[in-house]
């Protein structure tokens, strides 16, 4: 039996002067999907960054399986736009530190870049500057950057922002295909409740009254969600999918 990909033990996130969660304990196996939901300002991004090791926890532990590789899609573009970085160069960031030290690039990189950019339908933009792209094109480039190294975990903070409906549907299928082929684990923040609750196996719900976590169907009760978002709502099942309606 393989060890969990991610072990969270009594984790409390936040800042020295402000706690944003109660203790969380959860084990995530390989290939599982973890969703993080909550209202604005409840600490979703802070939790995600703490899981990735970018922020220290207030208390508790986050333990990744040794050698686990992360791919990260941030909430919004954080690449300094003053840099004249082309889309192809952006993908090279995703392959760091596998890049050759002395050479500019190699055939494997070029082929991998072309493949992933084609999946994202932006292969024609490989030589374009990132700052010249539209919001949606930039988001696709950031997803490509996260995926190009074939990580074990894809950590995505609202990845569907700026994308049109048609591509959102296509991206859902792409993620599913990646998961099936590569046993990819996903950690995702998404404001679209109806999408995220039907895609993830585990859920962490951050709210003013506390933190809930566990398998999605156990956590997802109308009372829990209503307390989290501070509004009455109704949860029902339709064609095998959970649907949330705020009243």
């Amino acid at each position: 039996m393989t060890s969990p990909l991610l072990q969270i033990h009594q984790l409390v996130v936040g800042f020295p002067d402000r706690r944003l969660s109660s203790p969380i304990s959860l084990n995530i196996p390989s290939g599982a999907r973890l969703g993080i939901i909550g209202g604005n300002g409840t600490g979703k991004t802070t939790l995600m960054k703490t899981l990735m090791g970018l922020l220290p926890p207030i208390r508790g532990q986050v333990k990744w399986r040794p050698g686990a590789r992360l791919g990260y899609v941030p909430q919004e573009n954080q690449v300094n736009m003053l840099f004249p970085i082309r889309v192809f160069d952006l993908l090279k960031m995703g392959l760091f530190p596998q890049l050759p030290r002395l050479r500019k690039t190699n055939r494997r990189l070029t082929e991998a870049s072309h493949e992933i950019l084609s999946e994202m339908e932006i292969a024609h933009l490989a030589k374009s500057l990132v700052r010249d792209l539209s919001g949606g094109e930039r988001q696709r480039a950031l997803i490509a950057r996260a995926w190009i190294s074939k990580p074990d975990v894809l950590v995505m903070d609202e990845p569907f922002n700026s994308l049109d409906h048609a591509f959102k549907a296509k991206l859902d299928k792409i993620f599913s295909a990646w998961q099936a082929r590569h046993e990819l684990a996903v950690i995702m923040i998404d404001h679209d409740l109806n999408r995220i609750i039907n895609q993830v196996d585990y859920l962490i719900v951050l709210g003013a009254r506390g933190t809930l976590y566990g398998p999605t169907r156990e956590v997802l009760t109308p009372q829990n969600l209503s307390e989290t978002y501070g509004a009455p709502l109704h949860v029902h099942e339709e064609d095998g999918c959970l649907q949330v309606h705020f009243l």
Partner: peptide
């Protein structure tokens, strides 16, 4: 370069 352009992403990459 990468550390200047996107330090957070490079932190996730282990830099």
């Amino acid at each position: 370069l990468y550390g200047s352009a996107d330090p957070e992403f490079m932190g996730v990459k282990g830099m």
